[in-house]
Design a protein around this nucleic acid. Structure first.
Lengths: 247, 247
DNA sequence: CGCGACCTTGAAGAACGTCAATGGTCGTGG
DNA sequence: CCACGACCATTGACGTTCTTCAAGGTCGCG
């Protein structure tokens, strides 16, 4: 899927080129990073809360999520990650994980040792700035989710998530014509949005009844983008996407 | 208050020295940054959602907060900031603000032009890494708040906030003996935790009745730290504080 | 003294959670 | 081929938490 949508670039080049302008030296530095690609099964933990990871993980295919689990077993999903993302880039600067990174679907990922990333960051300030910026966009998305969790009702939260994921997938060429893969269960949506599965189910049915979306199995179709944006009060500014192509 | 607790250092030196080891050159670079100190009244907006700021702001005294406001006027407070913080450091990399920065109390802040920060970041990788790390701790706090907003009940959220702010204040010498300044209104606590003012009021009364805290006016006393930690399921790992002094 | 800002209280209702059961789909093994 | 189990979506009934509305009450300050 990744390979199909363009020449086979190192995923990091693809990612960072969308953020900044990379020199040939920058690209070479990235190309020369050692990589260890692996295919992981669904619902597999990659790095756990409390770990001290020695690698960062780049997603090539599939969806990942980060989450925290409370004492009583309640889980809060903090983010979803799709191809091109580096979900645990922060571990380069914060040695101890304060949450868990797992696969959602089967996923292909590449592990890059911290030391190599650190060398590259020291030698190539442009890349360092781009990586920093990437973690800041991450934080911007957290802020938007906080706003949803604190102040939006269930329907708004779910609509907002659909809009966000569609745009993120679109930005990496994995969505078009208001259709995309959406491989989450209703329980996972609930864990991300602070809702019970039952309530997610009923609310999704409302969105369907209002002809806003069509979601069954792994496939999502947005029938009324404008309506969904309105329902979720969705404003994509927080995604800090430079090239704003029409979705 | 800042000056009273140590020799008059540049606030950024103080901040970064707690994160990393600064060389003399690093310190000189920071000292030579131009600063424009200002005293701002309470509830004053400093940078607004949608702005393209040209400076970063360092807090010397008082509390600031970041927030988003939804269409219907509902407000979500995203973070509180105390002396030593650089609440809008992200604007160095993300030109457009996706939220608003305001004072909570009267506050003294210093503005540093982006260009000077950029020059320093380019010339001093140690400082760049420390600033990056600071924004990552910021993001870690967002994640913890998300978990509270999504999965904790009102009592847990409020207890957690008390624990967090006490530790943050303690880390910069503004809290001791389980006492600290806590200049928020109940409405502001509600806006931060996704609760109505009425519910905050009743829940705070429960915490008082359980002899966990004493909060009146601007002053907070934690009567039972262990109990409060338990009520809020508070684990300070996410603050990524290096030197973990006993609170 | 009076006004504004904030805290407090009561009553009623909406949104959401919990519990428990049912049904659908798919892969797997007998 | 069919039965079975796993996983997920769905439904109904019933609680609970939290919100909303409305009304005092307190305190500091001009």
């Amino acid at each position: 899927m990744y390979a199909a949508s363009g020449p086979l670039l190192h995923p990091l080049i693809r990612k960072l080129a969308s953020i900044t302008t990379l020199s040939d030296e920058d690209k070479q530095a990235i190309e020369s990073l050692p990589t260890r690609p692996r295919v992981l099964p669904p619902r597999q933990e990659i790095v756990r809360d409390g770990d001290r990871p020695s690698h960062c993980c780049v997603v090539l295919e599939g969806w990942l999520c980060r989450s925290k689990t409370l004492g009583d077993g309640k889980r809060q999903i903090l983010s979803f990650h799709i191809p091109g993302d580096v979900p645990d880039l922060q571990s380069l600067q914060l040695p101890i994980m304060d949450h868990t990174l797992s696969t959602v679907t089967e996923a292909t990922v590449v592990f890059i040792p911290h030391e190599n990333l650190r060398d590259m960051v020291a030698a190539r300030p442009t890349i360092a700035a781009a990586l920093w910026r990437d973690t800041l966009v991450d934080a911007a998305i957290f802020r938007e989710w906080m706003t949803g969790l604190g102040r939006r009702d269930a329907k708004g939260r779910i609509a907002h998530l659909f809009c966000e994921m569609y745009l993120k997938l679109h930005a990496v060429g994995l969505a078009a014509d208001y259709r995309c893969d959406f491989p989450l269960t209703q329980t996972e949506v609930g864990d991300a949005l602070g809702l019970s599965t039952v309530h997610v189910n009923r609310t999704v049915q409302e969105l369907r009844a209002e002809q806003l979306i069509h979601w069954s199995g792994r496939s999502l179709e947005i029938l009324d983008w404008t309506g969904l944006v309105k329902t979720g009060e969705f404003d994509p500014t927080y995604l800090h996407v430079q090239k704003r192509a029409a979705p």
